[in-house]
Design a protein around this nucleic acid. Sequence first.
DNA 1: TTGTATGCGTTATCAC
DNA 2: GTGATAACGCATACAA
Lengths: 325, 325
Amino acid sequence: MANIREIAKLAGVSVATVSRVLNHYPYVKEEKRQAVWKAVEKLNYTKNINAVHLAKGKTSIIGVILPYVNHPYFSSIVDGISQEALRHGYHFLLFQTNYDVQKELEALEMLRVKQVDGLIICSRTISWEMLKLYQEDGPIILCEDAKSCEMSSVSIDHYEAFMLGMNYLIAKGHRKIGYCIGRTSGTNSERRDAAYRDALQNIDASPREEWIFDHCLEIADGARIVKALLSMEDKPTALLVASDQVAAGIVLWGQKNGLQVPENLAIVSFDNHPIAEALGITTVDLPLLSMGQKAFQLIHDCFIGKTTTNQNEQLPVRLIERFSV
Amino acid sequence: MANIREIAKLAGVSVATVSRVLNHYPYVKEEKRQAVWKAVEKLNYTKNINAVHLAKGKTSIIGVILPYVNHPYFSSIVDGISQEALRHGYHFLLFQTNYDVQKELEALEMLRVKQVDGLIICSRTISWEMLKLYQEDGPIILCEDAKSCEMSSVSIDHYEAFMLGMNYLIAKGHRKIGYCIGRTSGTNSERRDAAYRDALQNIDASPREEWIFDHCLEIADGARIVKALLSMEDKPTALLVASDQVAAGIVLWGQKNGLQVPENLAIVSFDNHPIAEALGITTVDLPLLSMGQKAFQLIHDCFIGKTTTNQNEQLPVRLIERFSV
DNA sequence: TTGTATGCGTTATCAC
DNA sequence: GTGATAACGCATACAA
């Protein structure tokens, strides 16, 4: 593979001039410019991008940390990041962690070793304290409210979203309300839980731990929820379901097992993915694509020095009324 | 940021020895090894991976080309690639092309400039001829049958899969059969179309172009299909649907509009994603996760020199009988 | 076992 | 405008 020196020799100029031509500098005599391009053509030359990375000390690659790529919630975010990165000539490495701290640490190491210029963390297990150790190695953007820990973030106001759902259910007369969630730990989940409890307190009702269902991620989990509900003596009359996928599962397995939505159980879910529309599920629209785009924009602002302070953006949500309540 | 030279100085050894320690070479005296690690610790040293890439001439990064990341079909494949890459200490860059040839070319360039060591192409628009120009730059694995163009591939036998579905429908007495597909071009789509026509020929039936629905990708497309079917005078009695997502859309929008599955329309779909089980849709299981894993394994075999010839693997499919026929 | 010297392919500085 | 040459940070062949 030809390198810049061979080009220089063939074109009869110095490597510096070749570099200038290749990088579209002004102030190169036209005839030399021509000669360089001719040599490039002739030797079928391409830059070795690793050399560029080394010389420049940056890669134009960002890292994206997420637990699962094969889930609509996260692949929507990735979609947004991807679109925006492409527009700015950036690439991204995907780190699928399955919420394993070891894997999260490995991804963070990529920032230290300069494999990536920055990091977007869609969801995490690792602690904020640990995270902050890597802040000096490059910009990190979190997809959760990180104002209190003094890191940059773009997030959905999950408290507001859950509150919206709760108040809607309450307005429709429900008092026995439970919820389904992917995991109970994590900033976003904790905010949702807080909204749940606050909303119940507002109507002098108390939360019921057995109405809170953990590990709800995909359609198949709906079967488990339905089964659990059916075997309960004192059932909730309504459920907030933190993923349209799970809500769909509940609706569909409910149909088969005599638990009708909304007759026997009201549901408000979250995301507003196509499946919710198809099933007529009332859902809170979460701007996941926008969040991905915004996350990249924030990190890019750091790269170009537009931003030096921590930014914390919140994206609005809205309830979409359909027929599951 | 400290570099290897500073470590060498502080530890009182040469850079070569530092490198040996860092890369776990044998034949380094224990006390020097200790000294090096102590210096590493003290200066909070990390390798600059770009320098490693430059010196080694490789990156341990592969590129993955796909049209959409936010679609279960593709994110399943990515999941497989991701899992397997991680096991072998590789990372991957995702190139979302939206089937845009320009973007596909940009991704291929990453192979030329040594940004990636190899490429997995999940789906493409670009021609085989163009693709072959990049073969000399590194291994390329296609997720489609590429035997005839002499490139490596791991694929699902979509001809067999479609034939399986067709014969099942035919055995159930259907003769008026159409199909839904993501796009009509592409190796995989062409193989499916061939199976469709061959199967009909076997029963002396002829294909009906108006029963072939293009651009079927996600749930929402089901609404369009249902509408089209309802306005047809001469309807098909059965449909092969190349994605569970679309099949789900047809079932759900059909319910709302008086087109019952299977009473008015039989459906066999493909993928065997959770939504198909939830809706009781008879589907052909496609091993997408395995395909992703296998794709990485093939490319890895090239890296370690285990394979020099083109490999063409086919993964088996199986029909899962449920209640949509 | 260890050190020296060189290569990897650019970019960037500085003198002319 | 242009060319030498020094970084960039590491791996490795070769010599000792």
